[in-house]
Write a protein that binds this DNA or RNA. Structure first.
Lengths: 232, 232
DNA sequence: GCTCCAATTTGAACGTGTTCAAGTATCGAC
DNA sequence: GTCGATACTTGAACACGTTCAAATTGGAGC
């Protein structure tokens, strides 16, 4: 959680490794090439050569090509949090906060749209530790969910108290859906995803407000109950 | 575009090709091995050997290993439709029809759960023609969506007339979500997915009914408007 | 039966991700 | 400075998806 000089995987790696520089070089090179040529057309040999190391050396630091993506992914998440910060400091309305955070995510992802398609493929593998739902990514996921806790915490909106504790996770789910949509979004500049965000956020805002309505109480209950059951 | 004697892909099959038998043999073998050993650990060489053909021959019929999965996927969809038929003939209530169709999907998928994880990975690739959202799968997807048109058509439920035309697609989306959940579901026998279906269906049913309520009319409008915008 | 063409089949060869046994460099202990 | 251990680096070798030029087969037309 704290800022350690541990640059490797999520788990935990070399405490103060000598080869840190090499590691960074390889990663930097890989991401650049991924962006330039796409994931599939970037070979490990090309990465190694471009970075000026032996191919085996790349495998010393990253145990697979996919790991390079995982690293990229976790970096992007950091960037997202950073990009979301000013929004959360500036805005106080729920809708504005949520929209800001979602747009920030897309902002951060945009330079990698084409390549992100491939990385998404990797993330989708349920057995992969990179999967957004796997237990291995519990840490990063929790951090991501916390972002939405913050969205909610700082907002002036009133929310059904029963629903509230579940809302961050639901918002995170909406965020995942947005990213999924974005990955598949082939419109120029992914403007459709922007449309989706701008359309969905007021809708979510409204639904959240309505959740306190008398007629909708049973529905809210039902949702909360379902979530509870799925969590065991 | 027209029906040529090209035996490949799911779309149009060989009219009466000579090698049809070989094609089936290879596919049968592949699916069997995928189930036995998983996707990644089944090599094309193994498939070819087990089927008693040369490896190049497999590539004559399926232009990649992924294509074999695509084929499997489209088969599964056929099975799903077949499994859903009796439910649709038997039930008349919306909730029962929807639940039946969703459970049928899981029934059909269950024998391939472990392997389906891998196939999902392939499907997730947006540039892949196998992606459930790609234009290449428009046909199968349409067929799938039609299933939910049928769910709705035969049901006794009353639905907001503005929402109605969009509902099949939304239900299909819910179905996709269910499958996604199932893919990641590691509970024994995927019982959690069953729980999800049994919990979500009454909820959806209720929401659909409520959509006609005066207070919710604006929300319904908003949803419809958003869908319209996203469709261009 | 023969000829010929297209459909089918073959397996060697290629490119790429990954592994591994064998080095080489670095640093603390003495 | 030397030694030993650990961190790092190397590139050849391997496995697997895929390609392709060449061989084989089956059947229509005669």
């Amino acid at each position: 959680m704290t800022d350690q000089p541990v640059p490797t995987t999520a788990a935990g790696e070399a405490p103060t490794a000598r080869g840190e520089q090499t590691r960074q070089l390889i990663l930097e090179t890989a991401i650049r090439l991924f962006r330039e040529r796409g994931y599939a057309r970037t070979t490990m040999r090309a990465i190694a050569e471009e970075a000026g190391v032996a191919v085996g050396n790349a495998y010393y630091y990253f145990d697979s090509k996919e790991r390079l993506i995982q690293e990229f992914y976790s970096r992007t998440q950091d960037e997202h949090r950073a990009a979301a910060r000013p929004v959360l400091e500036r805005e106080s309305e729920f809708a504005a906060r949520l929209a800001g955070v979602l747009h920030a995510a897309i902002d951060v992802l945009t330079p990698s749209h084409e390549f992100a398609a491939s990385f998404f493929k990797v993330a989708a593998e349920p057995s992969s530790p990179l999967s957004p739902f796997s237990s291995e990514t519990a840490g990063p996921r929790q951090a991501s969910i916390e972002l939405f806790t913050e969205v909610l915490a700082g907002s002036t909106s009133k929310v059904d108290p029963e629903l509230r504790p579940h809302l961050p996770e639901l918002l995170w789910l909406a965020y995942m859906g947005t990213v999924l949509y974005w990955v598949y979004d082939r419109s120029p500049g992914q403007t459709r995803t922007r449309t989706l965000i701008d359309g969905a956020v007021p809708l979510i805002d409204r639904l959240v407000s309505l959740s306190r309505l008398r007629v909708l109480r049973p529905v809210t209950r039902q949702i909360v109950e379902l979530l509870r059951m799925l969590r065991h």
